[in-house]
Simulated scan of single mutants.
Amino acid sequence: MGYFLLISFAIFLAFMLIDRPLLVIAFKDGQLVRHKGKVPKGFLHDCQDIAKRHPFTGTVKVYSNRFKPAKVVLSRSIDHRTQQRIKNVFPHQSFK
């Protein structure tokens, strides 16, 4: 019984610690390096436009939540003005 609880706790902990975003967009010096997941074309185009005007290095991740439609998480290396621009063009309707 003790082994079962220990193994189930370890599996639960591993499940909670794994990073599982819906999509990931990575930029380096204003250039798109990679994207993973189903990215809306308009959002990808807008992010590339922002990166051309204000070059930055970092990642944009989108997480799904049970109670909220989607959560945008931006890396700390992106300055706050650029973060706000990306959040403004994020299509919340695409992630319901």
Score class of each variant (00 low, 15 high):
Tyr3Leu: 11
Phe4Trp: 14
Leu5Gly: 13
Ile7His: 09
Ser8Gln: 15
Ser8Thr: 15
Phe9Pro: 01
Ala10Val: 12
Leu13Gln: 08
Ala14Ile: 12
Phe15Lys: 04
Phe15Thr: 07
Phe15Ser: 06
Ile18Pro: 00
Leu22Thr: 02
Ala26Gly: 04
Lys28Arg: 15
Asp29Trp: 00
Gly30Ile: 12
Gln31Ser: 13
Leu32Cys: 09
Arg34Phe: 11
His35Val: 02
Lys36Gly: 01
Lys38Cys: 03
Lys38His: 14
Lys38Ile: 07
Asp46Ala: 07
Asp49Ser: 13
Ile50Met: 03
Lys52Ser: 05
Lys52Leu: 03
Arg53Met: 09
Arg53Thr: 15
His54Pro: 03
Pro55Phe: 02
Thr57Cys: 04
Gly58Lys: 02
Thr59Ser: 11
Lys61Glu: 13
Phe67Ser: 04
Ala70Glu: 01
Ala70Lys: 00
Lys71Pro: 07
Val72Thr: 00
Ser75Arg: 07
Ile78Asn: 06
Ile78Met: 15
Ile78Phe: 10
Thr82Val: 13
Thr82Ala: 12
Gln83Met: 10
Gln84Pro: 01
Arg85Leu: 10
Arg85Glu: 10
Lys87Gln: 11
Lys87Gly: 07
Asn88Gln: 14
Val89Met: 08
Val89Ile: 14
Phe90Asn: 01
Pro91Cys: 06
His92Cys: 01
Gln93Met: 11
Gln93Leu: 14
Gln93His: 15
Ser94Lys: 12
Ser94Glu: 14
